[in-house]
């Protein structure tokens, strides 16, 4: 129940993010969720797109450093304490969240979040066992 995240290495330069996004746009690839982690001199753009393998090919062809990582997308109740509950479940099971971010759109009544875990298989199973809905690749395309 993992999905693919595409990460791109970006230098902190003017217009760089816009170039990468328009490259995806021209190729008809839609960004579903996105976050940027930055340091003083470089950043890492992480995103979930509707066509991950096409996006990876596109970046490779254009000489952009990118990789694919397995992440887990799960529905989290959109109410106060909703996320806290999910995180507690994970930490009780000794699962560590490397980072997380939200989808652009809401999924049904719940918020849809992307989690990066050390062990995505285990984490997805724990989430499901605790009654949370984990979205697969097909589910992403159907958004």
């Amino acid at each position: 129940m993992k999905i693919t995240q595409i990460s791109v290495f970006l230098e902190n330069r003017k217009g760089r993010l816009s170039q990468v996004c328009s490259m995806l746009g021209q190729a008809g690839i839609n960004i579903r969720a996105l976050t940027i982690a930055e340091t003083e001199s470089f950043g890492v753009l992480r995103m979930v797109v509707d066509k991950p393998s096409e996006a990876a090919d596109l970046f490779r062809k254009n000489g952009i450093t990118a990789n694919q990582t397995a992440v887990v997308a799960a529905e989290v109740p959109d109410k106060p304490g909703g996320l806290a509950e999910v995180l507690k479940t994970l930490s009780d099971s000794d699962v560590n969240v490397e980072y997380m971010y939200g989808f652009v759109e809401k999924h049904s009544e719940n918020a849809l979040l992307v989690f990066r875990f050390d062990n995505p298989e285990l984490a997805a199973r724990i989430l499901r066992e605790n009654g949370l809905k984990v979205i697969d690749e097909k589910g992403i395309q159907g958004l």
Partner: peptide, 12 residues
């Protein structure tokens, strides 16, 4: 390049 790139900032 791809070989040394990681999505995790702490690795980079």
């Amino acid at each position: 390049d791809e070989k040394i790139f990681s999505d995790e900032i702490k690795q980079m």
